[in-house]
Amino acid sequence: MAEFDFSQALGEARTKYETIAKALNVDRLKAQIEQLEEEASAPDLWDDQENAQDVTTRLSSAQAQLKHLDTAQQRLEDVETLFELGQEEADKATMEEARKEVDAIQADLAQMEIQTLLDGEYDSRSAVVTIRSGAGGVDAADFAQMLLRMYLRWAERNGYKAKVMDTSYAEEAGIKSATFQVNEPYAYGRLSVEGGTHRLVRISPFDNQGRRQTSFAAVEVVPLVKETDHIDIPDSDIRVDTYCSSGPGGQGVNTTYSAVRITHLPTNIVVTMQDERSQIQNRAAAMAVLQSRLLVLRHEEEAKKKKELAGDIKASWGDQMRSYVLHPYQMVKDLRTGYETSQTQAVFDGDIDGFIDAGIRWRHEQRREEAQA
């Protein structure tokens, strides 16, 4: 094993820190914090609760970024001092402590680096995620519910606010579909790499003969729209249906027609919402999700036109982006990035940051190659 070169490791860490600081633009970040602090101190801030939550959340996120940068800089200075002290006193324990600390700093900087790669047009937005069961019958419905739990646990592990907005339960087990919202800066940038078809291979718990079953579920991720996005939807382009909200097995949860289904006639996009108490609230929430999907659709059409003009028509995302294999071996593998783990239960418990980080790096490389083409 090669001898550990502390000077080289520290130099690499410093270089990465400088790259991150430059990409995040510390001066711009400080100016953003100052502006958000001014907005947050306005006496009428909470007259508009939605805007107030957006302001305070963005302020907290920006302050956290600046604090991480300041902390990383201080740690780099401290670990250099620690190593020099160990050298002067020929104290192997102190030098080993410094080695472990510089490794930890490098790991933390790698996480901070991910933030600099979230530079897409909508990456800074909150996210709306829809999961739908696909081929595979009851196993697919059960798999869709497993994925819903996985993402909600991921949000919980990271301290993100997640809210289930609509759930359509399957008759026997699992769900037909579910939509949830993650209100956190850059939630879309992170979760958007999860969009695509997910595949599960396992011994079916619903098969009396214990046969292996392959099932599929689709994950759709869209950014939450803002008032400035200007997605106009004429009333003539939508059909609004109302119905009673329901729970698992079709059991009614209320007797009023508060649930709303909106169909966008030109695109046949359907959005349902039943989480809120009133029909008015559900309609507003459904319209927000519809606008988000239309925003992404418009963005995709514009990107497609650009690719056609450039002569590049290859797809960026495959239909099957990740496999979850529980039999005959344990493995979750992302087919785009090659990232994999045998800790399948941990993944279904929300430990998916490794997959998300690998996906963000992969996407950044794809964008870089497209820009150079």
Rank of each mutant, 00 (worst) to 15 (best):
A21P: 04
R58E: 09
K30T: 13
R202M: 05
H230Y: 10
W317I: 15
R293C: 00
K161I: 04
T255F: 12
A21K: 13
Q181L: 12
K306M: 11
E34W: 06
F180R: 03
H327R: 10
Y324L: 09
D334Y: 03
A141N: 08
D78L: 14
G311M: 03
D334N: 13
S192F: 00
L76Q: 10
E97G: 13
E365V: 14
Q274T: 08
S7A: 13
D123L: 10
Y329G: 07
G159R: 01
R277W: 07
I114Y: 08
P328N: 06
A110L: 12
F4C: 00
D27P: 01
A371F: 08
L29T: 11
E184Y: 08
I356C: 02
A64Y: 01
R293G: 07
Q366F: 02
A259F: 01
A284Y: 03
Q63G: 02
E80A: 15
G86N: 07
A62V: 00
F216C: 06
L265D: 15
Q87V: 12
K92A: 15
K314T: 15
R239G: 02
I33F: 06
Q291A: 08
G137R: 08
Q8H: 04
Q74H: 10
T341V: 03
N208C: 10
A110K: 13
G210E: 09
R125Q: 09
H198L: 01
D241A: 04
E194C: 10
L147A: 01
D229W: 01
V240F: 08
V193L: 03
R239C: 07
M112K: 05
D232P: 00
S41F: 08
I233N: 02
H198F: 03
Y257V: 11
R239F: 05
A31Y: 09
K22P: 00
A162F: 00
A144D: 02
V102F: 05
L295E: 00
E276D: 14
D123H: 12
G134A: 11
A187M: 07
L147M: 04
S236L: 06
R211M: 10
N51K: 15
K22H: 08
I280R: 15
E96Q: 14
P223T: 10
Q35S: 11
A346W: 09
S258G: 04
Q366T: 13
T94M: 12
R58G: 00
L309I: 07
R125M: 05
A13L: 03
K100C: 01
A371G: 02
R99P: 02
Q345N: 12
A373P: 01
T57E: 07
V193I: 13
Q291Y: 08
S236Y: 06
A259R: 04
F355L: 06
P328I: 07
R367W: 08
Q345Y: 05
D91P: 07
G318H: 11
L76A: 13
D48E: 14
E34P: 02
D48A: 05
H68T: 14
A135S: 11
L290W: 03
I262H: 11
L59F: 04
E300P: 04
D48I: 11
